[in-house]
């Protein structure tokens, strides 16, 4: 899942990025409103964390313009003011949630997860495909009851595939949602990670879950039926 942070205070931006990266999210950071607007329109973020007091263009305006331009990524506003008026205004401009500074990091994490869930209409914390179980809460993956240890990127890739189960996802979409913008799009990294995932998940099972459609992309599904 890919997250954009728009926050002018470098220290705050950096701890959020660090914490979220460790949670296997792909995180980009911008330091002012215009830059934030640009990046949010460039790629399809799963969540945008938007500070209100920003140089060049404030968070409210960025939020409003994003919605006007048809960008529907969920937005969490960060504000140092706790005036109710500001909160209401933020939500009016199209934000999905807000957090008042200072906030607990766990709280931010919980809000992000809630937004991801809401947006993709998953009601549970556990994603399932056949006998493969993916617990987003404590980062545990099991197949047929046996725990599988995954690396950070493998984990993020699998989460993305499972959240889109049954649908084919293009390599470019995977890159957008799993890697941050420093990703070199000419490499065959996706290919390599799909290979690793197959090794860990499908090896030894007669029923293969991860499928490739040549030249199109990948999908995960629980039976041999059509896509």
């Amino acid at each position: 899942m890919r997250i954009l942070i728009v926050e002018d205070d470098k220290k705050i931006a950096s701890f959020i990025k660090k914490g979220l990266t460790e949670e296997q999210y792909a995180v980009d950071v911008c330091y002012d409103g215009e830059e934030g607007l640009y990046w949010a329109e460039q790629s399809d973020y799963d969540v945008i964390i938007l500070d209100i007091m920003l140089p060049k263009k404030n968070g409210m305006k960025v939020c409003k313009e994003l919605r006007e331009n048809g960008i529907n990524s969920p937005i969490i506003m960060l504000t140092a003011k706790d005036a109710i008026k500001d909160k209401i205004k933020g939500l009016d401009e199209g934000a999905d949630d807000y957090l008042t500074k200072p906030f607990a990091f766990e709280e931010l994490l919980a809000r992000i997860k809630a937004l991801l869930r809401r947006n993709q209409q998953y009601k549970t914390e556990i994603l399932k495909v056949a006998d493969l179980e993916f617990d987003t809460l404590n980062h545990k993956v099991r197949r047929a009851g046996k725990e599988i240890i995954l690396s950070g990127k493998e984990y993020a890739l699998l989460e993305y595939l499972m959240r889109n189960k049954g649908k084919s996802v293009k390599e470019t979409m995977i890159i957008e949602h799993v890697w941050d913008r420093n990703f070199d799009s000419f490499s065959n990294v996706v290919n390599v990670y799909i290979h690793h995932l197959r090794e860990k998940i499908d090896r030894g099972f007669s029923k293969k879950l991860i499928h490739t459609i040549r030249g199109v992309g990948y999908f995960i599904k629980d039976d041999e039926g059509s896509v």
């Binding site: 205070d9 140092a80 005036a83 200072p102 607990a104 990091f105 766990e106």
Partner: peptide, 25 residues
Amino acid sequence: SSDVAHELKTPITAIRGMSEVILRK
């Protein structure tokens, strides 16, 4: 007062957040 709040909340947010992230593992 809202400026004061903002100006002081920013470093507090950084201190709290940084510490919490560091303490997660």
